[in-house]
């Protein structure tokens, strides 16, 4: 799986190069190349091995046979604060599916030195917000970019076969305070558990930008 990640990083470089060429040779054909080769709904979810806050390796492939929810995380982001502190969207949704073969993982792709990326900040958030699921650190941003994670939170659901079945927002209130009346992750989980196709499988996430490094 490591090879896969290397391939995607290489592809990123190639596409960036192609973009430059296309921009120089006018007129550029807008539809002929992709911005970033990140996973899309329907693709196999990119595997990863990341360390949790206790230094333990967590590997996605180890959860084959389970449904996995990925939550992009940054304890300093007000939209993350909204769903962990002002409201309890994440805790409540995770708890509701805990006994239904659903594994919930938070991933922080902030680079070293960026807001919310340090071990201290994440450990404090885990304690203050009583987060019971693992918070994984992805300081190189490789996993975040493989999924095309743009915001915190940005939510993904992976089915038991390792296929990406949902990518988007947690809910439909894009502000920093209120809960949406529609929890997209809950809807996706209900459909996946019932063996159905996810109806609203891709939508626009909202929140702070993921604090990637260079």
């Amino acid at each position: 799986m490591k090879n896969l990640l290397h391939v995607s990083v290489l592809a990123l470089g190639l596409v960036a190069g192609a973009g430059l060429l296309a921009l120089q040779a006018q007129p550029a054909n807008a539809g002929s190349y992709a911005a970033a080769p990140s996973a899309k709904v329907g693709d196999t979810a990119p595997d990863f091995t990341l360390k949790d806050l206790d230094g333990k390796d967590v590997k996605l492939a180890d959860y084959k046979g389970k449904i996995v929810v990925l939550e992009w995380f940054n304890p300093g982001c007000p939209f993350v604060v909204k769903h962990h502190s002002t409201l309890d969207t994440m805790k409540k949704t995770a708890a509701a599916y805990k006994d239904k073969d659903v594994v919930w993982l938070a991933v922080n792709s902030g680079a070293d030195g960026k807001q919310g990326a340090s071990m201290e900040e994440n450990t404090k958030a885990r304690k203050d917000w009583k987060i019971e699921y693992p918070i994984l650190l992805d300081p190189t941003g490789t996993t975040g970019k493989a999924y095309g994670a743009k915001t915190t939170p940005h939510m993904y659901v992976i089915d038991k076969g390792g296929k990406l079945v949902y990518a988007g927002a947690i809910d439909n209130d894009r502000g920093p305070k209120k809960a949406g009346e529609k929890n997209y992750v809950k809807n996706a989980l209900d459909e996946v558990i019932a063996g159905k196709k996810v109806t609203d499988a891709t939508n626009e996430p909202y929140g702070c930008s993921v604090k990637y490094g260079k």
């Binding site: 296309a22 120089q24 550029a28 807008a30 539809g31 911005a35």
Partner: peptide, 15 residues
């Protein structure tokens, strides 16, 4: 689609 690469042209034509 692909706004990063295609939302801005170099030259007088944008697709």
């Amino acid at each position: 689609r692909n706004p990063l690469a295609s939302g801005q042209s170099k030259g007088g034509t944008l697709k």
